[in-house]
Design a protein around this nucleic acid. Structure first.
Length: 499
RNA sequence: UCCAGCGUGGCUCAAUGGUAGAGCGGGUGACUGUUAAUCACUAGGUUGUAGGUUCGAGUCCUACCGCUGGAGCCA
């Protein structure tokens, strides 16, 4: 047999002899037959090796989890196999025998898994997330590519700050200071003046000391920038863009989402148009007594649910005291553990919520929304929420002033549903040279290093704008994850660089 | 940076201040349909580090280190 097949192709190869190359996810032995849970990156299938093939049978004698091997055998429809298909193996060729693979099929702690991230990636859950991540990225690029955008790569070493300087990673660039990119935007604006519709996709770096479930120090961002686009155009672009991504994932990765336990019905509603609020309307909503009442009711309902969960735990513990079979005890213990985790999460939410409600009531126009305000606002809608026209003071210098209300700028944030927070931030850009200069002056910025950027306002300035989508927060939302660390193969977090 | 919790075998966890244990994983053996297989046997420990209290410390106290959760910070 000179050609190789993959697990994903097996349903189309019934009764044919195939050779697969991959790894042992698990192996069980039952006297004269061995069952190999075989994975090759394209999928998982069960392989059986019977003692009537003595060489193949013996070859698997001492093979542990993650042993690499090639198997040859006949593909059979088999209802007793988990996937409905299995390979009846006649030949086995071992690449390498793996001994004592550290990640067992039982539960592990976060620290241990993060230290073994390079091996953790082989687990079914991580595979599913990686596939969804890939789909999100390819759908995002497909959306722009089909709409006449040109990909422009912007530099990662940058001479200065586009955002707050306190959050830049500085590097020594042959004796001169340089910084890792926080955004490709300024460069992308120049490219939009050349190509009209452009986007960049690359890693960005933030030195924020944020130790939360939604912050990475290195994350990937895809940023479109379009000449002649104004705020309303950006709103439409963002909702069509997100809808396309979500629908693409639903079309291609439904099995992955289900493996992750994602409530897919919540994603099916994600279609343009999205709800829109101006910042001022959002502040009014936060002050609305009807909202406060709704939040109070929600709090009471969750407190009730917490009580019910505690009751269930008590019931299970009672059952536990009457059960003696080892496997049943294990099962009950696990159920109890899961409920206890839920209660913990719920109690945390319940303890934070009164302060969040107070924050909403006392929120003053002019401040930026914190995570709690974002969560409250986004939870009032099933679809992502577009919030526009924030106060000038809390936003970046390059954002275009709003003519109708000069206290605000022509920007937009898109907040993901279910409390996943801001996934898109962007704006129409200030295209008037004098206004841009006076804005920079007001921020205490030296215009000298930005002359190249200011040239755009000197030579054929036009209205334009763009936004950035954070890939990892999008993955987190679409997969329904609790923590952003699982959204990227090798997360860089405050205080964690290994492996 | 602040607050809280946790550090016990490779992993996940037990252990009133009084002889450190279990499950999984590893090893050996049994079993021709397993699904986290099952059953029997077996090896594996300076309880994060350094001090202190005590007749006696995994357990109490102090400091440090590490991790987790949260707060703050944050296109």
């Amino acid at each position: 047999m000179s050609t190789f097949s993959t697990v994903s192709l097996l349903p189309g190869l019934l009764n044919e002899t195939v050779t697969l190359r991959g790894w042992i996810r698990a192996i069980r032995s039952s006297g004269k037959i061995r069952f190999v849970e075989f994975r090759d990156g394209s999928g998982t299938c069960q392989c059986t090796v019977e003692a009537i093939h003595p060489e193949a049978f013996a070859a698997l004698e001492h093979c542990g989890q993650e042993t690499s091997l090639a198997v040859t055998g006949v593909v059979k429809a088999e209802p007793r196999s988990p996937g409905g298909v299995e390979v009846s193996v006649t030949d086995v060729s071992i690449y390498q025998i793996a001994e004592e693979y550290p990640i067992s099929r039982k539960e592990h702690g976060v620290d241990f898994l993060m230290q073994h991230r390079h091996l953790w990636l082989r687990s079914p859950r991580q595979e599913a997330i990686l596939r969804v991540r890939h789909r999100i990225i390819s759908a995002a690029r497909e959306f722009f590519d089909l709409d006449g955008f040109t990909l422009i790569d912007t530099p990662i070493f940058q001479p200065g700050a586009a955002e707050g300087a306190g959050t830049l990673f500085d590097v020594d660039y042959f004796g001169s200071p340089a910084y890792l990119a926080q955004t490709g935007q300024l460069y992308l604006e120049t490219a939009a003046m050349a190509m009209g519709k452009v986007y960049c996709f690359g890693p960005t770096f933030r030195a924020e000391k944020s130790k939360t479930r939604r912050h990475l120090t290195e994350f990937w961002m895809i940023e479109p920038e379009v000449a002649f686009y104004e705020l309303e155009d950006l709103e439409r672009l963002s909702e069509n863009f997100l809808s396309h991504i979500v629908q693409s994932v639903l079309q291609h990765n439904r099995a992955d989402l289900e493996a992750l336990g994602r409530d897919v019905s919540l994603l099916e509603t994600i279609q343009a148009p999205f709800p829109r609020l101006t910042y001022s309307e959002a502040v009014e909503l936060l002050h609305n007594p009807a909202l406060h009442e709704k939040l109070e009711q929600e709090l009471a309902a969750e407190q009730q649910r917490c009580k019910e969960l505690n009751q269930s735990i008590t019931d299970l513990e009672h059952q536990l005291s009457q059960v003696s079979k080892a496997w049943k005890v294990e099962k009950l213990k696990k159920e109890i553990q899961e409920l206890q985790d839920q209660v913990k999460e719920l109690e945390l939410w319940i303890s934070n919520q009164p302060a969040h409600i107070e924050d909403a009531k006392s929120f003053e126009w002019g401040h930026d929304f914190g995570g709690d305000e974002e969560t409250i606002l986004s939870k009032q809608f099933e679809r992502p929420l577009i919030v526009t026209e924030y106060p000038k003071e809390v936003k970046a210098f390059y954002m275009k002033e709003n003519e109708a209300d000069p206290r605000t700028v022509r920007n937009l944030d898109v907040l993901a549903p279910e409390g996943y927070g801001e996934i898109i931030g962007g704006s129409q850009r200030e295209d008037d040279l004098d206004k841009l200069l006076s804005r920079m002056q007001a921020e205490g910025m030296d215009p000298e290093p930005y002359q190249w950027y200011l040239d755009l306002r000197r030579y054929g300035s036009v209205p334009h704008g763009g936004f950035g989508l954070g890939i990892e927060r999008t993955v987190s939302w679409i997969c329904g994850l609790k923590h952003i660390r699982e959204t990227i193969p090798f997360p860089r977090l405050m205080g964690r660089m290994q492996p």
